[in-house]
Design a protein around this nucleic acid. Structure first.
Length: 599
DNA sequence: GCCGTTTTCGGCCCGACTGTTTTCAGTCG
């Protein structure tokens, strides 16, 4: 189990290679081929090792002879000769530099070769010393914009967590509602609508009441927390907030809305695929509609006829009206309606063509929560309060899973305290109706392997989650081994937050998730999608990989407070992005079937 | 570099906006 390159890591290396090729000024279609290959590779569910040894890389779309060889090289050596060569030629700092809005590959190239600027720090200095202005194509305004962009980059490198983005979008919505006469409707789009775990900027699509009026822009200038209006045209307004977040407004007229909604929801890669399809059929697709290439006439799509079956089904996340609007366009291409969470060019277009899209799980399918804490360990409420709050969400069951004794920092339970808790649950169950309280534990996987409680203790409980809370710096082999061993313990039902990451604060520990997924599949152990917006662990890609190997996922909140039980919706977002159906999810089971499973 | 319900060679998505320019390149989504 030596450090082995996964498909995702190989994909990252190809992306880096593509970025450097772009700065170097390589052929743009060659660069695109590398980017396409990286994207396909990042979402394959098979192990890279298998694909390499069986020589099947070329079965992946976008990977031909050349890239197959490069990927094999990456697999066996950990890098590519081309990449090493480019790294010798171009300093690594240039990769950071193209992260700055306004600096792309061309300008990075120019800055490096003409002023020897090889990173963000150099750029900042050169801007201060006004050296940049002299370059061809660099005027005083661009220099000023770059100065501001560098300052923002330094203060705000992180993306927002999805709950933060939701809050911000709500704040903007409140501001808009104050002057509802300015627009007919608006919808948030972009990665927020696709429910990505981290969001860079807020995208809002709007049909203004009067496209000629500057009333909207004026109103937006009064938004609380606004830093400045970065750009404003007749169809786009971009705001920058004090916290560095950009808010893009896209303005369209009513009948442009469906095409604009697809365009502005993205992803970019998904849009590119759709436009390729349009082109093949003799049309072109842009944000204003679908047009014939011959006469450039806009195609009027009847939005209510001949919808594919799945588009008629209800969904909590999209109103039928919007769905119909977008559906007409998808249907024109012979595709079923594609939910926003799937629009990442990870095979959804091919599946939609074959009518093989998943029937995505929905919050209404969730019947309980398995992972929550009470005052027995580090939670803020008692068992009864958590149970009542869970019942209010319409759940059939919840499991009480406090920490085990080794986790002193979270006042983990001793064997005696666990027994007391069991007793309280029994008594409470007689008193409270309408929800089943399962007894459980989040038992620590100890640094040297093994669990914090004996099997004799664990077998008295309804449900056991095993999690790692210590030894994060151990080797990849060691941590992978601890998790695999936990899977093989018959008392363990679920592996909690399998990668141990805290978004923006702590990286995942080193672990070979492919091996853990295989162990989970073999032993019938579930893997958690931890719904806390700070974790969202497993992520969409790994959850999808796990489900494709037959592993059931448990979506749980890890709530320490009654108010956190609703975080479940963020976990469902991940599950939807992972293509999960309710059959893939443990807590979509009715109580009876769940108890059978646990037994 | 990849790919083919037109193609094994000649294509490879589309548009807005800014700042720099006198017609467009660069960047972004």
């Amino acid at each position: 189990m030596d450090k082995e390159i996964t498909a995702r890591e190989a994909a990252d290396i190809l992306s880096e290679l593509a970025d450097l090729m772009e700065i170097k000024g390589d052929n743009r279609y060659r660069i695109r081929a590398y980017q396409n290959a990286a994207r396909s590779l990042s979402s394959v569910s098979e192990e890279l090792k298998v694909l390499v040894t069986e020589d099947r890389l070329m079965e992946i779309k976008g990977i031909g002879e050349g890239l197959s060889a490069t990927i094999k090289e990456i697999f066996s050596t950990g890098t590519a000769g081309q990449l090493e060569e480019l790294k010798r030629e171009l300093p690594a700092g240039l990769l950071d530099m193209i992260e700055i809005p306004g600096v792309g590959p061309k300008r990075a190239h120019q800055l490096y070769y003409q002023l020897e600027i090889s990173g963000v720090e150099d750029l900042k200095k050169a801007l201060q010393e006004k050296k940049v202005q002299g370059l061809e194509g660099f005027g005083p305004k661009l220099a000023q914009n770059l100065r501001e962009a560098v300052a923002r980059y330094e203060s705000f490198q992180e993306r927002m967590k999805i709950n933060e983005a939701d809050r911000l979008a709500e704040k903007i919505a409140e501001h808009l509602e104050k002057k509802s006469e300015l627009y007919h409707k608006y919808k948030s789009a972009g990665s927020l609508r696709r429910r990505k775990e981290l969001v860079k900027d807020i995208d809002i699509l709007m049909v203004p009441a009067d496209p000629e009026s500057d009333g909207l822009e004026k109103h937006l200038r009064e938004l609380e927390g606004l830093h400045k209006v970065e750009s404003g045209g007749s169809s786009k307004i971009t705001l920058v907030l004090e916290n560095g977040v950009k808010v893009d407004f896209r303005l369209v007229v009513g009948d442009e809305f469906p095409a604009a909604f697809i365009y502005f929801t993205g992803s970019k890669e998904h849009n590119v695929k759709l436009r390729q399809l349009a082109k093949q059929k003799g049309y072109f697709l842009n944000e204003y509609g679908l047009f014939s290439r011959e006469d450039e006439e806009r195609l009027e799509l009847n939005q209510n006829n001949n919808l594919p079956e799945k588009a008629r089904g209800g969904s909590a996340s999209n109103s039928d009206q919007e769905k119909y609007a977008e559906s007409a366009i998808y249907h024109f291409f012979g595709l079923d309606y594609i939910e926003p969470e799937l629009r990442e060019d990870r095979g959804e277009i091919e599946a939609a063509r074959k009518g093989e899209l998943p029937e995505l799980i929905d919050f209404s399918n969730i019947r309980g929560d398995f992972h929550l804490h009470t005052r027995y360990s580090d939670g803020a409420f008692g068992i009864e309060e958590m149970a009542v709050a869970a019942r209010e969400l319409g759940y059939e069951y919840l499991a009480i899973t406090d920490h085990s004794k080794s986790l002193r920092i979270a006042s983990g339970l001793s064997e005696e305290q666990l027994k007391e808790q069991l007793e309280e649950i029994r008594k409470l169950q007689d008193k409270i109706s309408g929800i089943k309280i399962l007894s459980g534990i989040e038992v620590d996987i100890l640094p040297e392997g093994g669990l914090d409680f004996s099997d004799e203790i664990l077998e008295q409980l309804d449900l056991v989650i095993a999690s790692i809370h210590s030894g994060f710096n151990q080797s990849r082999d060691k941590i992978t081994g601890r998790l695999i061993e936990a899977c093989h313990n018959p008392e363990v039902d679920i592996i909690g937050h399998p990668r141990g990451r805290l978004l923006g604060r702590r990286d995942a520990y080193q672990v070979d998730m492919s091996e853990v997924i295989e162990a989970a599949a073999e032993t019938g152990t579930c893997l958690e999608i931890n719904a806390s917006p700070s974790r969202l662990d497993l992520d969409d890609l790994l959850a999808r990989q796990a489900a494709s190997r037959g592993v059931r996922l448990a979506i749980s909140t890890d709530a320490h407070h009654t108010g956190e039980l609703i975080d479940m919706k963020f976990g469902v977002d991940v599950a939807r992005r992972a293509w999960l159906e309710k059959e893939n999810v443990l807590n979509a089971l009715p109580l009876e079937e769940l108890l059978e499973f646990l037994a």
